[in-house]
Simulated scan of single mutants.
Amino acid sequence: MYVANCMSVALFIPCYLDQFYPDVAIASLELLERLGVDVVYPDGQTCCGQPMANTGCVADCAPVAHRFVELFAAYDTIVCPSGSCTAMVRHHYGDYFADDDPQFNHVKNRTFELCEFLHDELKIQSLDVQFPHKVSIHQSCHGLRELRLGASSENMTPREDKVRNVLNLVHGIQWCTPTRSDECCGFGGTFAVNEADVSAAMGRDRVADHVSSGSEVLVSADMSCLMHLQGIIRRESIPIEVMHVAQVLVGRMPKRVSPSAS
C-alpha cells in the first residue's frame, strides 16, 4: 500500500454527508489515515453554498463562499468526498472573488475530490482491501463534466477513468457495465424539487440500467446522486444497493448482498 510522506490535508465534509451519511465521512478519514496522510478537520466548516448558487440566490451564497475560503486557505491541500461540492469550489467560486485574490486562488487550485486526490496526488498503486461483489459505477455529471474524472460520451477527448482506476486496486470486484455509462441520474440538487417527475423518471432509468447489467452494488463518488437513486431503490424494493466509493475503498461490506462466487 502506498504511504504518503507525512502529507497533511484538510478534510472538507459536505453538509449532506455530515447530516445524512456520516459513515462516508468516517470512511474517507479512515482511508486517508491508512495511506499515511495527516488529516485535519477544520472546526466551523459549513455548506459550500452550492444549493443557494443553483437556485440563483447569489447574494446568499457569497458569505458562505467567503467563509469557506477563509477557513481552508491556511491548509496546503483540501480533500472532499463529493465531486459536486469540489466542482462548486473550483469552478464557481470565481463569481464571489477577485481574480487576483491569493487566498481564493490557493483554495481553488488545491481542492480535490477524493478519488482525484488518490489518483493524481498520492498516486496510490495498491490497496489491501477485498470487495467480492458485482459492481457498477455511476459517474456523476459534476465529476465528469467539470472535474474531468473520466471521459464523457458527448466529448471525444480521451480521459482516464480515475474513479474506476482507484477501485481497480480493490481485490475481488466483478465489474458490470451499464448501457449508458455516463447518463445523469436526474438529481441535480434543486432540479429534483422543481422538476420532481422528470427527476424521478431519470432516476428510474438509471437504476434499471444498472440492475440489467447484473450489478449488486451501485458505487459512486457522489453521495448526492446515490441519495436520489437510493430513494427510488427503497420505495420500489429494487434488488441493488448503493455505496460511496470511500466505503468500498476501506472494505465496508453491503448490508444485504452476499459475496459473489468467483
Rank of each mutant, 00 (worst) to 15 (best):
A201G: 14
P259V: 07
L71H: 03
V58N: 08
S212E: 13
L71F: 11
I124S: 13
A200G: 09
A246W: 00
L29G: 00
S152M: 13
T77N: 05
A261T: 12
I232H: 09
S258N: 04
F20E: 14
I78M: 10
Y41S: 01
E70Q: 15
V193C: 08
V257M: 15
T179Y: 08
S84L: 01
R206Q: 15
Q103T: 13
V248F: 13
Q50G: 01
G94Y: 07
M7H: 09
F12R: 00
L114S: 07
I173P: 08
Q230C: 10
G251M: 13
P22E: 10
V64H: 07
M88F: 04
C141G: 07
F72T: 02
P22R: 01
R90G: 08
A59K: 13
L35C: 12
V211C: 10
G94N: 13
S212D: 14
L249N: 05
M243L: 11
Y41K: 03
V24R: 04
P132H: 04
N165R: 05
R164D: 07
H66R: 09
K134F: 07
C47Q: 11
T179P: 08
C184G: 01
V245C: 15
K162Y: 08
E33W: 03
V245R: 03
D209E: 03
F12S: 01
R148A: 02
S258T: 14
A208Y: 05
H133L: 10
L32Y: 01
C141V: 00
N165H: 04
T157R: 11
W175M: 11
D120F: 11
T190C: 10
V58P: 10
Y2C: 07
V242E: 02
T157C: 11
S8N: 03
A74D: 09
C61F: 07
C225W: 01
L32T: 01
R234Y: 12
D43G: 06
D18S: 10
H66G: 02
V163H: 05
P14K: 03
H138F: 08
Y2V: 07
L147D: 11
V69A: 00
R110V: 04
M202D: 12
G83I: 02
V193S: 05
R235L: 12
R159P: 11
Y2P: 10
C57L: 13
D182Q: 04
G56T: 06
G186E: 06
Q174Y: 00
S84V: 05
Y96P: 10
V64Y: 09
V89M: 00
A10Q: 00
H133K: 15
V207K: 02
H171T: 08
C57T: 03
M7Q: 08
V198K: 08
H106F: 14
S152P: 01
D101A: 04
G172C: 10
